[in-house]
Amino acid sequence: MIELDRAGRSFKVKRNVVHAVHDLSFTVAPGEFVGYLGPNGAGKSTTIKMLCGILTPTSGTVRVAGLDPSRKRTVVARRIGVVFGQRTTLWWDLPLKDSFELIRLLYKVDRKDFRVRLDELVETLDLSTFMKTPVRQLSLGQRMRGDLTAALLHAPEVLVLDEPTIGLDVVSKNSIRAFLQRVNAERGTTVLLTTHDLGDIERLCKRVMVIDHGRMQFDGTLDELMAGESSLEEVVTRLYTAGAQ
């Protein structure tokens, strides 16, 4: 479903070339739930942005559902759902309901399918009380649930989440985690999740990838990563500090 082959993205900063992502290769099979970890500035967001066609790779290839996102951006956009925890993709001044309707029209979702999906999402994410509120007036937790709904209305095959639980309280976090688990299990949606919250990883991901300095440091199951140790936090701390040296 997702394939990276020696993908790289470099930026010119003044006269230096910075490799945000360097020779990165991995594959995610349909239906997998993968955690994508790495310290700040490791290249996680850059990877995600290459997956949705926001950034064009400077080397190697990126494929999502068999397509090159930078060349077939609008086709890939219909098959991928993206959530940025730090930034809403909704329309700031529009009520949530109108944002969703606009998404239906932009993604050309069939009216009946849309109705069914929206009703289901409104119920499971408990959106009914603020459907008529403009996005700018929503609390972070409400907005996040709105963003998740928006990313799923077109029934994407792949869901990419960039820190979806950032800044959320325990209750909101748990409801979002339970929801993601359901989406993955029931719809078979492939999920790639970036987070700094190790609780997200422990609860949701069978497979974990860790990158640092734009290179893959670990790619395997959560059990392999733990290697018999009890604290994920310690394991991850060791990996991150090893990369820094």
Partner: peptide, 8 residues
């Protein structure tokens, strides 16, 4: 970024 994720 937000504009680039839409199929438009």
């Amino acid at each position: 970024d937000t504009m680039l994720i839409r199929p438009v």
